[in-house]
Simulated assay, not measured.
Amino acid sequence: MRITTFLIAISSALTSTSTAFAHGPQGHGSAAGSAHHASAVREQKDWGIAGEASAVRRTITVRMTDDMKFAPATITVTEGETLRIRAVNAGQVLHEIVLGTQAELDAHAELMRKHPNMEHDEPYMAHVEAGQRGDIVWQFNRPGTFAFACLIPGHYEAGMRGTITVRPR
């Protein structure tokens, strides 16, 4: 009886965690890179909040390439705008796009260097396999200058970064 109770407790603890640790195609949405944050909790961040697809009025396609560049590398939005950022991986290796403040991205990049197989799946990021695409739907509800980057070790250090300017209404 005690062993059964113990196994149930362990099983429950393992299935209730929300952090995963493997940086690869598993856990990053479908092979086509479709939106995979449908059940994501909407949490206010300094750079905005997860948006509702029904509120999107504009889609910006951002190409990611193996020369460690984003195109475009600058995006301008108006405060309150909900934007679909369509990340297209035109390269031969996995790339990602992660939105945040420069300080948040620097800290996350350091963590990725220490734990390169760490999986993370938040509504402000998209992990995209070679030749695929992924979407981020984000409401930019705070003005300021924010950043986006590929935090895969080596990519960030090679300059795979961009900026987002959110103009006040």
Rank of each mutant, 00 (worst) to 15 (best):
G80R: 02
M64P: 04
T4S: 15
D66W: 01
D67M: 04
F148H: 06
H120R: 15
R142D: 05
V56S: 03
T59L: 07
Q102Y: 09
I10L: 15
K114C: 10
M68H: 01
I85T: 07
R86A: 15
G154I: 00
V128Q: 02
E122R: 14
S12K: 11
I8C: 09
R169G: 10
N141P: 12
S39N: 12
L14F: 08
E104W: 04
A9G: 13
V93M: 14
F146N: 00
R161I: 10
I164M: 02
V77Y: 01
R63H: 13
M68G: 00
S18K: 14
A22W: 15
A158K: 01
R57V: 12
G134Y: 05
Q26W: 13
G134M: 00
G154Y: 00
G134A: 02
P123D: 08
Q132F: 08
M160D: 00
N89H: 06
H23K: 14
G24S: 04
V77I: 03
G80T: 01
L94H: 10
R2P: 14
T101G: 02
V56E: 04
R42C: 15
G159M: 02
K114H: 10
I85Q: 03
V56D: 00
P153Q: 06
V166A: 00
E122K: 14
V98F: 11
Q92G: 09
H37N: 07
F148R: 01
T4W: 15
I60M: 07
Y124M: 04
A31E: 10
V137R: 04
E79W: 04
A40D: 09
F6Y: 15
M112R: 01
R142Q: 09
M160R: 01
A13T: 14
H108F: 11
I75A: 03
Y156G: 00
W138L: 07
R167A: 09
T17F: 10
A126H: 07
H36P: 07
S12R: 12
R113D: 12
P116G: 01
R161A: 08
R133G: 05
A109R: 00
M64Q: 02
P168W: 02
H108K: 13
A53M: 09
W47F: 06
G29M: 05
A90C: 12
P116C: 05
R167M: 08
A90S: 13
